[in-house]
């Protein structure tokens, strides 16, 4: 998609320049929300203000809405066809592979530190327990817990001198995300 954005926005319409495009994409990827919609909102706002942002993001969604509506008609028609069922059974393995690849690709951007690995481990345990319905926990609280822990951890490690900060690594971060997310679980 980035290639397409560059061709349309930078080369053809000259709405933004190269540097700004890199900026926009970096912002779009690191803020909450769908990346394509984030990008559209930003460029739309730059070219034509709030209305521009609105129009651009709706325009990005329209093709999806039309195409998916048509496809869902086809699913209704052919969903129970045995060939379609076999095909989707085969596709399921491919989807599993794609998701695993996405996780691996994403993990390359993660910080390689003990704290981050611990947070990942705790989040994984909670997420698996929740996915297989062993505990009832909204995934959102796992993300919120991690964010909160990140802020607290940032403040805690900021004030300490470097010598001390390296030692309590393990004990501190193993408890913290747990208690945060567990507190929220009760709500």
């Amino acid at each position: 998609m980035v290639g397409l954005i560059h061709k349309e926005m930078v080369e053809k319409k000259k709405w933004i320049d190269d540097e700004e495009m890199l900026d926009v994409i970096a912002i779009a990827e690191s803020t909450p929300g769908v990346i394509a919609l984030n990008t559209a909102t930003y460029v739309g706002a730059k070219v034509a203000g709030v209305l521009g942002a609105f129009v651009a993001s709706i325009a990005v969604m329209l093709p999806s809405i039309i195409i998916i509506s048509l496809i869902s008609l086809a699913i209704e028609e052919f969903g129970n066809n045995k060939y379609v069922k076999w095909a989707f059974l085969g596709i399921r393995s491919a989807v599993a592979a794609l998701i695993l690849n996405a996780a691996i690709k994403l993990s390359k951007n993660n910080e390689k530190s003990i704290v981050c690995y611990c947070v990942m481990g705790v989040a994984l345990v909670l997420a698996v327990l929740s996915t297989f319905e062993i505990i009832k926990l909204d995934m959102v609280f796992i993300i919120l817990g991690a964010a909160l822990f990140g802020i607290i951890w940032g403040i805690a490690t900021m004030k300490k001198p470097k010598k001390e900060a390296s030692q309590p690594d393990n004990s501190a971060n193993e408890d913290a995300p747990f208690t945060e997310t567990e507190n929220k679980e009760g709500e």
Partner: peptide, 23 residues
């Protein structure tokens, strides 16, 4: 920035959990 530092590995973990469920 500090919040995102911890959100990133968490999102990875959530996707791994989704993968386990699909597999």
């Amino acid at each position: 920035q500090n919040a995102f530092r911890m959100i990133r590995p968490t999102v990875t973990a959530l996707i791994v959990a989704a993968f386990l469920s699909v597999i």
